[in-house]
Every structure is written in C-alpha cells, then in structure tokens.
C-alpha cells in the first residue's frame, strides 16, 4: 500500500497561506510530530514576527474555559475576525493516549474559526511542547487571535504565561478558585482575571476576594513587576454575558503591551523558555539514545548492582555522547 506522496512543508505552507484548511491541519500535525520536518517548517516562518495575538486561557478544571472560548469565538466572528484555537488536554502518562474533549463546547460557535485539539504528549505544566511553534504558525497564517486553552489539570500552569501574549485566568465563585490560584502563584501570571459563572451566588464575593489579593500584590510590589494591574471581568459563559468585555480587556492588554516594550519583552521571554524546553527535550532524547546502547545497558547494570556509583556512570555516559548536531525534539 503506497499512499499518494504528500506535498512537502514548503508547498503545504503556500497552500495554507491561500486559506486551505486541510493544509493548515496537516502542517500542525507535522509541527506536532517534531523532528526535521518541524524544524523545516519553523525555518520557513519569519524569525521575529511580532504580528498576531496569542491569548492563553487557564484555570481550574470545570471553571468554564472551553465554554468561554466558544463564546469568544462567536464575538470574534461578529467582529469579522478569524480566530484559531488550540485546545490542550493531557496525555495519559501510562499509555500516551489521550481523550480530547474541549472542542465540543466551542463547535456551536466556531463557524469560520479553526479549532485544533492537542495532547500534551508527555509535557508537564498544562501545555503541549508544540504549542509555541503551532501558535507561531497559526499567527503567521493570519489567524487573529490565536487562543490557547490549557489543560485545567489543576497544577501550576506557568508555561502558558510564556507562550501567550495575554494570559486569562478563569475562576468561578464559591469553590475557592481564587484562593487556590493565588496560592499557586497564578495571580502573578494573569493579565486578565475572569470570574465566570457570575450567574451563581458568590460572584461578587469572588470579585472582592480577587481585588483584595491584587491590593496585597500592589503592596508587595507585584503590580510593579507585572506593569499593569489585571482587569477583572465577570462572565456567564452559558449565556455569553460579559464576554464582549472579556475580549475588550484582552485586546486592551495587547494594545498596552504593544504601546511599550512589553510585547517584545514577552516574546523574548517566550523564546527563551522555548529554547530551554527544546534543549531539555533534545538532551532527554540524547540520554535515551545513549542508554539504549550495549554500553549504556552495561553501565546501567553496574549501577543497579551497586558496583558503579551513579556519579561515575554519569561521567562515563556523558563522555560517550560527545558533541551532537542539534535536533528538533
């Protein structure tokens, strides 16, 4: 069985620029798989492109991230814009499989938008490794904004703040979301704070709690570091109430970044962290390869038997690796 030869990345990119959705989808698959093809695609994109707007949406499981994203898509369509969404869900650490269920809440509103689900594939922190490369691709193809929904696994989701220009933290009333987020340091990362489910009792209290925590942040100098006190928006994702205000707040944040050197600084930081992640991944791949040789297995056996110390083994293995050409992870 020989599948018809698929077009190469350059050809795909050309077609994708012309608006072909299949080509966009295919390119994302290639970026996501990594390797040389992903590097090739990255190389085809302008190096420092400050166009576009990447909005990260994070928050506890069930806070309403997907519902809000869906409503944002409707708002954006009304405004004549063409958004894209990357919806990230966790891969199973045991089997590598994943169930990606976010887009169901968006599809009803997504006419004209491009929505793609992505599994974390072993990456920690609520994002998939390929997210920065994919958002760059989508922004380059003219999608504006590119919205990234993080997993909501409840862990600290710091990565999103480096992968997005604007980070939106979604909380809901009555569940201690705000307090949890504060404890986890998430408030420091948020550019816009949302109290969703504002139709529920306690929304005003939740808002007050957030204000209070921000006031404390003001005292501790947090606001000075972030540059700007995050706006708080109340929304009801099930009806769309407050969603235009949320969009306005995100746009205003983007504008304020662009007015100063904020955007440049963020994207620099993003690239720095992306480099670190890529490096880490490449090193891990090198290590895995080195361990999977006869020499590697011998050293491992010695360490397991206690006849060689882990430190000595490490030195032996590192010496065996030598300098290697860079690889897309």
């Amino acid at each position: 069985m020989s599948p018809s030869p698929s077009p190469g990345p350059a050809a795909l990119l050309r077609v994708a620029r012309g608006g072909d959705r299949r080509a966009v989808a295919r390119l994302i698959t290639l970026v996501e798989r990594g390797g040389d093809t992903a590097l090739e695609i990255a190389g085809l994109l302008p190096a420092a492109d400050d166009a576009g707007h990447v909005i990260g949406i994070t928050g506890a499981p069930g806070a309403g991230k997907s519902s809000l994203t869906g409503r944002l898509l409707a708002c954006l369509a009304d405004a004549g814009r063409t958004p894209a969404v990357l919806a990230v869900d966790p891969s199973s650490p045991l089997t590598g499989g994943a169930i990606l269920g976010d887009r169901v809440r968006m599809d009803g509103f997504a006419a004209g938008a491009f929505v793609r689900s992505m599994a974390t594939r072993g990456q920690q922190g609520g994002l998939a490794f390929a997210v920065p490369a994919t958002t760059r691709l989508l922004a380059h193809l003219g999608f504006d904004p590119v919205i990234v929904e993080t997993t909501g696994v409840g862990q600290v989701e710091v990565d999103i703040a480096s992968a997005a220009d604007t980070t939106v933290l979604v909380t809901s009333p009555g569940w201690g979301d705000a307090v949890q987020a504060n404890k986890a340091g998430l408030l420091e990362l948020a550019d816009v704070l949302v109290v969703n489910k504002a139709d529920r009792p306690g929304a005003r209290d939740a808002r007050r709690d957030l204000e209070l925590m921000l006031d404390l942040g003001h005292i501790s100098g947090l606001e000075a570091r972030a540059g700007r006190r995050p706006e708080i928006v109340l929304t009801v994702a099930t009806t769309g109430d407050g969603v235009p205000e949320l969009l306005a707040a995100a746009d205003a944040h983007r504008a304020s970044l662009a007015a100063g050197d904020g955007l440049v600084a963020r994207r620099r930081r993003g690239r720095r962290l992306e480099l670190a992640a890529t490096l880490e991944r490449s090193l891990r791949a090198l290590v895995d390869t080195a361990m999977d040789t006869p020499a590697g297995r011998r050293v491992l056996a010695d360490v397991e038997a206690g006849t060689m110390s882990p430190a000595d083994a490490c030195a032996v293995l590192l010496a065996g690796m030598g300098p290697q050409p860079p690889r897309g992870a």
Binding site: T95, G96, A98, I99, L100, R103, V104, S117
Partner: peptide, 16 residues
C-alpha cells in the same frame, strides 16, 4: 471505545 482507544495509546477527539 474512547477509553479503550486512549488506553491503546491513541489520541481521541471526543465529540460525543
């Protein structure tokens, strides 16, 4: 089926 496929290492976009 979604769980079976996930547990077999596949990525399932579940629309329900």
């Amino acid at each position: 089926v979604a769980r079976i496929l996930r547990d077999a290492g596949m990525e399932v976009v579940y629309l329900g």
